[in-house]
Design a protein around this nucleic acid. Structure first.
Length: 532
RNA sequence: GGGCCUGUAGCUCAGUCAGGUAGAGCGUCGGACUUUUAAUCCGAUGGUCGCGGGUUCGAACCCCGUCGGGCCCGCCA
């Protein structure tokens, strides 16, 4: 059974209506690691709906969290904002400086700055969750109940955290973090509590009080999370393996949720996504591939397929090179399969059946538009990558595909795919082994591997190409002429030509590629090779 | 120290929950297509299931131990 269906089954035992939660702190650039969080949630919700339940996806924006440090992309000026909530400080401008103008005029915050492009990418990917900004929830008093329970009996909370996580809390620990006189959550000492106020002294020697029902502070993460489960009626939440560890925040959250008076959601722990060869993704080190950047390379359904086809417990190595080609081609192959027919075979082994069923579900989850069928474009990524390189104009690509009977007219999907393919080819991510290289000078090694017969083709090739019209047809004709003149087969002509022009044994059709090159340069290459 | 995830073909992984003849895709090799956009099709190749015990008629799967990799036990998600 597909992992999303396993989860849906678990949800079915709990009830008919579900709210699947995801949540991210908008502290920096979003990356495809965050995509796993949100897509995992989306796929659980889809699976639940497919199983006949009602399910909604929500996205908690943790903009009540404080700025932790001055990241490399921020101006040192941000030093003054450390400890301040992401939803209440200005966004960095293009130079990393606080954009006060937009902040004052439009209320454009640090959190908005990073969240907005991510939401755009999500839309393209077919995910439109209901947003739950956390700072606003505090200000609206939604945390009141939980905050009061915790503040009324701090020892109960402390007991749970210390017992479950096995770590000792400082003696002055208090389950509420007040905002200080400057708006920071750091360095504040709680001096007393009298509902609904928490009294404090801050690092500047100022005293004050914080109303726990009006967002004048926040709950520490380990309480904040279970509190949100309550007032948002969350029934299911996928989260990264960090939270899932024994003694981690889900473990303590489970018990704290009960203290607050509600059931914890059904959990699903997922592994991280790393970049192939570059280790874990990290916004601060700049070692990231953003969702937008990824979408310029591959269509959204491929990105969805990556998540759908990997069990959450499996770490994913995101490979922007050959891995992406293979992934996309696998997707294409799956699209072309007839799963119903395959499953109708009564002799299928259990293993085989599971494999087919999982592939089928993964494919269903990959379509951007829920409950629509995936469509095969009948052109593999590999093939399209070649055509895109050989034909500078889109129309040339379509002509080639028409000529081979692959398509009649390009579908919007295919046009879209070609656009992305071109941007991929232009990027640093495009794998070298997929790139078509023409030799700028003769490749002695490749030529040396030719047989005598094949080498003898070269002078005839030179003669035939010299007088050929420099078009695809003209060049193709010249190859045939060469075979006749040299009294060898076409096989040897091509074998020699690939060694000559590309330094390889085989390759994509030469004539269309050569016709896009300069005849003079190519002839020079032939002459030099012949003379060797 | 405590815990979680992970280890299966050259590569990516499925199969472990419900024990029953080791699977898929990619790659590689060979063939076909009276030569082809590294295409397509067919065939072959390929594994001491990390290691050692135990339970069982039977273990990749369950139990115990052990080794390697990743991660958590921070007011970071």
């Amino acid at each position: 059974m597909h992992w999303s269906d396993v989860m849906a089954q678990r949800l079915a035992e709990r009830g008919e209506t579900h709210i699947v939660a995801t949540g991210i702190t908008p502290s920096g650039e979003f990356h495809i690691g965050h995509l796993r969080e949100i897509l995992t949630g989306d796929m659980i919700a889809r699976a639940a709906r497919r199983a006949g339940m009602e399910a909604e996806l929500v996205f908690v924006v943790d903009n009540a969290d404080p700025l932790r440090k001055v990241y490399p992309f921020l101006d040192p000026e941000y030093e003054t904002f450390i400890g301040h909530q992401l939803g209440s400080i200005p966004a960095p401008d293009e130079n990393g400086k606080p954009d006060w103008k937009r902040f004052n005029e439009e209320g454009w915050t640090y959190g908005d700055h990073f969240l907005t492009p991510f939401l755009e990418a999500l839309k393209l990917i077919g995910v439109t969750p209901r947003l739950l900004p956390n700072l606003e929830a505090y200000q609206a008093g939604k945390f009141s109940h939980a905050a009061r329970v915790a503040c009324d009996d701090p020892e109960a909370v402390r007991e749970i955290i210390e017992r479950v996580s096995g770590r000792e809390l400082p003696t002055d620990w208090f389950p509420w973090q007040p905002l200080d006189s400057k708006g920071s959550l750091d360095g504040v000492n709680v001096t007393g509590y009298e509902y609904p106020h928490v009294h404090w002294t801050d690092a500047h020697g100022v005293d004050g009080r914080s109303n726990i029902e009006q967002g004048e502070g926040k709950l520490p993460w380990r309480l904040d999370w279970p509190a949100k489960w309550g007032f948002n009626a969350i029934t299911c939440e996928p989260f990264g393996k960090d939270h899932g560890a024994a003694g981690g925040s889900y473990d303590t959250g489970k018990e704290i949720a009960l203290l607050f008076g509600h059931e914890p959601p059904a959990p699903l722990t997922y592994e991280w996504i790393s970049l192939r060869g570059k280790g874990a993704m990290s916004s601060s080190s700049g070692n990231t591939v953003g969702p937008i950047e990824a979408l310029q390379l591959v269509p959204p359904e491929i990105l969805r397929f990556l998540i759908a086809n990997s069990k959450p417990s499996k770490a994913i190595e995101f490979d922007t090179g050959m891995g992406l080609v293979n992934l996309a081609d696998e997707y294409e192959r799956l699209c072309a399969r007839d799963f119903e027919a395959e499953l109708a075979d009564p002799d299928l082994s259990r293993r085989k059946r599971v494999q087919i069923e999982d592939a089928k579900v993964a494919l269903e989850l990959s379509v951007v538009e829920e409950a629509t069928a995936s469509v095969a474009t009948s052109v593999s990524f590999r093939h399209l990558a070649l055509l895109a390189q050989v034909k500078p104009q889109d129309e040339g690509v379509w002509e080639s595909l028409r000529a081979t009977g692959t398509i009649v007219d390009p579908t919007p999907t295919l046009k879209d795919r070609l656009t992305r393919m071109r941007s991929w080819i232009a990027s640093e991510h495009f794998p070298e082994e997929m790139r078509i290289h023409l030799c700028s000078e003769p490749d002695a090694t490749a030529l040396g591997e030719l047989t005598e017969d094949q080498r003898s083709v070269l002078p005839f090739l030179e003669k035939a190409l010299q007088s050929a019209p420099w078009t695809t047809e003209g060049i193709a004709e010249a190859f045939k002429t060469t075979a006749t003149l040299s009294e060898t087969g076409m096989r040897d002509v091509y074998r020699a030509s690939y060694a000559l022009f590309m330094g390889t044994e085989r390759g994509p059709r030469l004539a269309p590629i050569l016709s896009n090159c300069d005849q003079g340069e190519m002839m020079e290459l032939v002459r030099q090779a012949t003379a060797l």
